[in-house]
Design a protein around this nucleic acid. Structure first.
Lengths: 189, 189
DNA sequence: GGTAGTAGCCTAGCTCTCCTAGGCAAACGA
DNA sequence: TCGTTTGCCTAGGAGAGCTAGGCTACTACC
């Protein structure tokens, strides 16, 4: 019998693509096996279980996003960097809804520590350098920034903005203006 | 055979409680049937299908949250109202993680229109009245506000803030300060 | 170049979930 | 009192997750 040539990497990539098409919750071991023309039981040679598969998608997405954000950030500073970061983030989420959703799953601490999540933190802190914020304001600002980006993208995806005619692109641009203004003038305690 | 006295309302309430315990994704028709000492097939007399059950949880949660926010908002204005709204929102999400997660599912337009989502929009707009923002800034501000709240709560839940020692409560308080400052001084176009 | 080991697939089969079809009995309204 | 409706049942199929155990093709090493 000819071998299908399945590896954990090819499996994860196909699973991520499938997630973008049909949603992470519909990424099943069985569907993935069908895609490779293989029986579902065979995949358990490469992955631990269905949850492990989704974690692998999340780690792939984190790494991919970190790469794209890193590229977008190159040579930029201040508001320019903030906007580039935000747009790279939102673009990725738009192009890869399934991967983005997978990124939200709760990783256990050691997995999270080994992930590209660290690179994300570093890049976020790098942007804040343009705004001269000392700790703990810096951490608070990072958290707020991340919350706003994630919240916007997340609500946009689930249709939370659908009931108002205003184009979301415009609201996004203005949100970035507002965030820049806020970071430039972070309130005193 | 004695009747268990199952109704769609009791079913939804039990499902919501179950969601808070084990997560929405683990709310199964079978588990719910066990809770009522009834066969799973019997529940299809009260609900359409498993998705319908989750939608009911979402609608319940939206209504409950609208009530709590409405109470918290009574007699308040300005920053006071903003903070009350935000805390009611975050408290609900903390006390009811499963219900909160269910609220994020994508409702079809007519269901969404009939939900308590409308009350949420109205209350949010009411808060903004204290900040004198004209359209389209108002819509942008509402979207940003909602994004920040939802993003923060969502990241807090999935452990996105775990890698930094700073207490999330402190970041939350400062985020609200920042949001108030921003709304008081919304940038010109 | 033969052979041992392992990597990569298989079948069989269990459990669980979702859901439909069809039946029966309790509660209720006329 | 007697339908009619309501609320539950059993039976069962389809699909998902996963395990156990077996067979085969490739690889490495003597």
């Amino acid at each position: 019998m000819a071998r299908a040539g399945v590896t954990a990497e090819r499996l994860t990539l196909a699973a991520a693509d499938l997630a973008d098409e049909v949603g992470v919750e519909n990424v099943t071991v069985a569907a993935l096996a069908r895609h490779f023309g293989v029986k579902d039981a065979s995949l358990y040679f490469h992955i631990k279980n269905a949850h492990d598969l989704r974690v692998r998608i999340a780690l792939l997405a984190l790494a991919e996003l970190a790469d794209e954000v890193s590229d977008a950030l190159a040579g930029r500073a201040g508001k320019d960097a903030l906007v580039a970061f935000a747009n790279a983030y939102r673009d990725y989420a738009t192009r890869h809804p399934g991967r983005y959703a997978a990124m939200q799953i709760d990783l256990d601490p050691e997995t999270a520590a080994a992930s590209a999540g660290i690179r994300h933190s570093e890049m976020t802190r790098a942007i804040l350098r343009g705004y001269q914020l000392a700790e703990p304001d810096q951490t608070d600002a990072i958290r707020m920034m991340h919350s706003t980006f994630h919240g916007f993208v997340s609500l946009e995806r689930t249709g939370g903005f659908r009931h108002t005619p205003r184009p979301t692109d415009d609201s996004w641009a203005r949100t970035l203006d507002a965030l820049d203004a806020l970071l430039s003038n972070w309130p005193q305690r």
